[in-house]
Structure formats: C-alpha cells, structure tokens
C-alpha cells in the first residue's frame, strides 16, 4: 500500500514538474516569436516543411472523409426524403468538427512527429548545445519559427480539409447518387453560418495547431538524448496530441454550441 502511494506520489510529482517545464518552454517559445518575423526566411522554410508537406495527406484524407460522409448521409437522409440537405450535412460536419479534429490528428501524426524527431535528434547530436555555446539561443533560432509555422499552417490545412471534403461529398452525392447539384450547394449556402460554423471551426483549428505544435516541440526539446529517448518522445507526441485535441474539442464545442 505504501509502495503504491509512493508510486502514485512520484508519478504525480513527475507529471507536474514536466507540466511546469512545458509551461516555461511555451513562454520562452512565444517570447522568441518576435525575433522570427525579421528573419522571414526561417519561417518560410518551416511553413514549407510543416504546412506544405502535410498538404498531401490532408487533402487525400479530406477527399475520402467527404466521400464517406456523402455516402452515409445520403442513405440516412433519403429515408426521410431529405437528400437535398446532403450539402448542409456534409459541410456542417466538416467545418464544425471533422475538419479541425481529423486534420489536427493528421497534423500531429505527420508534422508533429517529424518536429519531435528532428529536435530530439538535434539534441542527441549536440547541435542544440553547440548553438548555445555559439551564443545562439536554440529556442529563438530553432523552436520559435517552427511553433509559428505550426500555428499558421493548421487553420489553413483544416480549411483545405473541409473544402476538399465538401467536394468529395459532392462527387458521391451529386455525381454518383443523383442528388440535385443546385440543392447541394444552395442548401449549404443558406444554412452554413459564418460565425457559428466557419469562425468556430477556425478557432478550433487554431487551438489544435497551437497545442499539437507545442506538444511536439516540447517533447523533442525535453527528450532523453538517445535513440530510445527520441523514439519514446515521438510516440508521446502523437498520443498526447491526440488526447489533447479530442479533449479540447469537447471543451470548445461545449463552449461554442452549449447555448444552442
């Protein structure tokens, strides 16, 4: 029993200490963001590797998710003779929930794991220590540009995911199952609200990008500098990001749509 309590106490202390280190790391990273803007090229390189290179997986996944929504939505709505509202169902599902959440999860898997592995390996090969000894702050030079790129890329990727998903839904609903094309788009235009749907989806994707990038960068920076340590850190990035995104999604959804 005592051993169990010791284990519990030790684990709690470790986790709170790590949370403290993470918060301090976030503060230093955000403080370093100001130094990124005058060196736009650093940001541009990271926007490419974090954002542009994630585009393929996001767009293909968005297309398939939209196609499945079109198919499932059609079968359910046609039972009620409401297949003309397929566009609304596909667009609302994507813009409100699936766009930010699924692209957040994919972003954590594709870009987040790459960021953790890159920074963890830089630590393991003493590149970060080397920078410190050259009087170059690795947080400002390495971490902050990646953080900013992650925060900027994620809303754009989520928007693309939703847009491509809507096209996927149309391909199946209109092209394959015969829903009226005018109804698909007109119902969507009439029912999708800018603030309730698009702006809230945007805020969600921004929050998910912020959290996923923070976790990825911190896990890399805090990794034990060995092959096993980097491997564990990469796994933690994907797992912790997934939990954080799904948990945060529930909280944000409750706050945004709780009064409806």
């Amino acid at each position: 029993m005592v051993r169990f309590l010791q284990y519990l106490g030790g684990g709690t202390l470790t986790n709170f200490t790590k949370l403290g280190r993470g918060a301090r790391f976030l503060y230093l990273t955000m403080a370093g963001v100001g130094s990124v803007l005058p060196r736009f090229r650093l940001l541009l390189n990271q926007l490419y590797s974090v954002g542009v290179l994630s585009f393929l997986i996001i767009s293909i996944s968005g297309l398939f998710v939209g196609m499945v929504l079109g198919l499932q939505g059609y079968y359910i709505l046609s039972d009620f003779g409401a297949e003309e509202t397929l566009g609304v169902m596909v667009a609302a599902s994507l813009v409100r929930e699936l766009g930010p959440v699924v692209s957040g999860l994919l972003f954590a898997g594709r870009a987040g794991s790459a960021l953790t592995a890159e920074i963890g390996l830089m630590k393991a090969t003493e590149q970060l220590s080397g920078m410190e000894m050259m009087a170059v702050d690795p947080i400002k030079r390495i971490v902050s540009p990646r953080f900013l790129a992650g925060c900027l890329s994620m809303p754009l990727l989520a928007a693309l995911f939703s847009a491509i998903g809507i096209i996927g839904g149309e391909l199946v609903g209109v092209g394959l199952l015969g829903v009226d094309e005018g109804a698909y788009w007109a119902q969507m235009q009439a029912k999708i609200d800018f603030q309730d749907d698009i702006a809230n989806g945007f805020i969600k994707s921004l929050a998910f990008g912020f959290v996923a990038t923070w976790i990825a960068l911190f896990e890399g920076y805090d990794a034990v500098p060995t092959a096993e340590g980097v491997s564990r850190a990469t796994t933690r990035t994907v797992v912790n990001s997934a939990f954080s995104i799904l948990g945060l999604d529930f909280i944000l959804t409750a706050l945004m749509f709780g009064d409806d």
């Binding site: 830089m122 090969t125 590149q127 220590s129 080397g130 920078m131 000894m133």
Partner: peptide
Amino acid sequence: MLFQSGALLT
C-alpha cells in the same frame, strides 16, 4: 567549443 561529435548543423 569543439564537441566530441562535431555538432555540425546537419
């Protein structure tokens, strides 16, 4: 400082 690994930026 010269690190054991060289610590070159890869």
